[in-house]
């Protein structure tokens, strides 16, 4: 039995449309949460402000996407109920987003891979038959262009910097590459949304992402790792061990004081 077929989805039955929004929203949320861990601890003041900016944008995207997902679900759950009161198996973020920050280089590698993915996804959503989603994507893509400039700029500096920085980011790339397969592994949700003209087909996005990443890696003098066959299934609710810890911390107050208003 594959990991994906064992996935459980507790709570209400969600439409493919709703699940698609959760995938995007949860990816932004978890990545934003991870980036916020850097605030006050970055290599320099400018990077502290930059990473905080990225985090803030991503959490803003998550709020729009989760609010919309909650409305589609129709169970009365708002952005906070979805963010703070779901357990890990109900989170549908890409597995890459939940991976630990590691050093600054590893954070940059994770960011660059996901920024390039979001760039393609949001660009594809500009023509979505879902006008609300299209308008969220139109706002998000402007932010994501800046995010990609930040992360790819740093990846080039670190890759083509010192011997040590080159070694560190190459190792991070080798380590995180296995999670990129999931970004383009279409399942019934992706297929249904593509067929309905809501979302772009992932198969179309993959070559553009790949070309964009290759361009950065070349400038950064980094070697693209070999494809890794194993697929991760965060977007189906099957996560790495890390997500549970991210959520335990993030959800602490809402879980400790049920029903309180903040």
């Amino acid at each position: 039995m594959s990991a994906a077929s064992r996935s459980i989805t507790p709570g209400p039955v969600q439409s493919a449309h709703c699940r698609y929004l959760l995938r995007l929203g949860d990816t932004s949320l978890v990545l934003g949460q991870r980036l916020a861990e850097w605030v006050g601890h970055s290599p320099a003041l400018e990077e502290d402000l930059g990473l905080a900016n990225l985090s803030l944008d991503l959490i803003g995207q998550a709020r729009l996407l989760l609010s919309y997902a909650g409305e589609l679900e129709g169970q009365g759950r708002d952005e906070d109920a979805l963010a703070f009161l779901r357990d890990a198996p109900a989170f549908l973020n890409m597995t890459l987003a939940e991976q630990p920050n590691g050093d600054f280089g590893r954070t940059i590698v994770r960011q660059c891979l996901l920024d390039a993915w979001q760039l393609e996804v949001y660009a594809g959503l500009a023509d979505s038959s879902d006008r609300r989603l299209a308008s969220i994507a139109a706002k998000a893509i402007k932010e994501t262009r800046y995010h990609f400039r930040f992360s790819s700029g740093w990846l080039v500096r670190l890759g083509d910097g010192t011997e040590e920085s080159h070694r560190r980011v190459q190792e991070a790339l080798n380590e995180l590459w296995r999670f990129t397969t999931e970004l383009f592994a279409a399942d019934e949700v992706d297929d249904a949304l593509a067929a309905a003209g809501v979302a772009p087909g992932l198969a179309e996005l993959q070559p553009r992402w790949s070309a964009r990443i290759d361009e950065v890696l070349q400038e950064a003098t980094l070697v693209r790792p070999a494809p890794v066959p194993y697929q991760w299934h965060g977007k189906r609710g099957v996560h790495t061990e890390y997500l549970g810890h991210v959520l335990a911390e993030m959800q602490h107050l809402q879980r400790t004081y049920p029903g309180a208003q903040w």
Binding site: L29, Q33, A36, E37, V39, G40, H41, L45, D48, L49, A52, N53, S55, L56, I59, G60, A62, R63, L66, E79, D80, A83, F84, E249, M250, H252, L253, Q254, A260, W262
Partner: peptide
């Protein structure tokens, strides 16, 4: 910054990140 990861709502989290960023 110690409370960013545990802010109780997404709005509070966003406002706190923005505030700490302002301080930087």
């Amino acid at each position: 910054g110690n409370w960013i990861s545990r802010a109780p709502t997404l709005r509070r989290k966003a406002v706190l990140i923005a505030k700490v960023q302002d301080e930087g």
